[in-house]
Each structure stands twice: as structure tokens, then as C-alpha cells.
Amino acid sequence: MSDHEHKNTGDVHRELHSHLPPEPALRVRAMESLLIEKGMLDPETVDAWVEAYCEKIGPKCGARIVAKAWSDADFKARLLENGAEAVKGLDDAGWAVAHLRVIENTPAIHNLVVCTLCSCYPHAILGPPPNWYKMAAYRSRAVRDPRGVLKEFGVELGGDIGLRVWDSTSELRYLVLPGRPEGTGGWDEERLASIVTRNSMIGTQRDLSIDAGQA
């Protein structure tokens, strides 16, 4: 792409910024009404997407994948081999992420996921990313000072635990498979899923609490 075109896109942004209403809520309303007038948007479809992401799609989808992996060794092996293939056929996770890869925490290894260049995240199995995942502090520091970042999340990682930080630079989407806590023997998948947190699947939490497990 030529420098000329670069300048144009940057200039379009600056022009939009100076002409659009200052409040995000007003900018959103103006875009919605224009897109409807242009025949590019059905407001009921917007409602349907919002409803899907508020009620159906969220960390509980990822938690069910984790619980199944803890309960079914064959599924876990397939999940670690190719996450996208393994989750095909699961109800609402099956169509989730075209290029899902799952990385396993073990007693010797901890994994942490970031996207330094934008904010790539497995929306369809974890919902929209938290704000901190999209902000400069996390994106800049997760690759360079991950132990410091983990401390801010309350995770003191022992020096004997190897740390791997995955920068999501391609369309592969990474999900951390956290370790199954002690004291959960005999739990069914639903109960197991209830203790799996969003942050544990990003890697900003390591140890899961069994107190929240619904009997």
C-alpha cells in the first residue's frame, strides 16, 4: 500500500474524530441510524447479537470445554492435539472458534495469553474480552514482565515453574487448560465447570478455588 493511501486513512480518522459527536453513545446512535438508512443493518439483528453475548456466549462455554477435558482423557488428548477439531460437535462450543488451540497448565508449566498487536481473543467461547486485556498496560507488559503482571492478579508463580507467554499474532486462538484442583474427585462435568474462571482460561489465574463448586 502506498504512503498516499496511508495518509488518507489516517486523515479520514482525524476528520471523523473532529466531526463526530464527542460522546461515544451519540456516535454509536448516529452510526446505527445511518447503517439502517443505507440498508446495511437490521436493528433486531443487533438485539440478537447483544442477547447472545449477554446470555448464551461467555466464559461458561470455555468452562464446559475445560470440565469435559478434566473428565474425559480421550477428549483431552484430542483437544490438545487440535482444539478446533475436538470441540466440533459440542453443543454451543462446537461452532465456536475456527482455529482454536488449547495449551495445558501442568505442575511444571504455566501459560499466559496476550495479543500485543490488537486484542485477539476467543470471543465465541469466552465472550468479549475484559477491558484490561485490550489496554496498553497488559499488552505491553505481558510479554516482557509476565511475572510482574501475574503478581498484580494475585498469582505468585514459583521460580521452578516454567512460564510460556503466547502472543496471538495469527488467527489461531489460544485457550489455557487450567489444572484440575485437588478435592474434585467424583464431581460431574457441570459441577467442575462451575469452578472454572475466565481468567484461568487466559492464564491470569493459576489455582482454582473449589469453594464455588455447586454440588
Binding site: 461515544p24 453513545a25 447479537w49 447483544v50 453475548y53 449477554c54 484490561w132 498496560a137 498484580e152 492478579f153
Partner: peptide
């Protein structure tokens, strides 16, 4: 890192609307 953020899908109505659009 702001780790104290409330864990919700969207933090305001306009955010949800923008995402849906």
C-alpha cells in the same frame, strides 16, 4: 494492569450496542 474490573460482558449500553452493530 487494572485487575479490579467487574466481570461483565459489556460495561455500558452503548458498548453492547456498538458490539452488536
Amino acid at each position: 494492569v487494572d485487575t479490579g474490573e467487574k466481570e461483565v460482558a459489556f460495561h455500558s449500553d452503548w458498548e453492547a450496542r456498538a458490539y452488536g452493530i
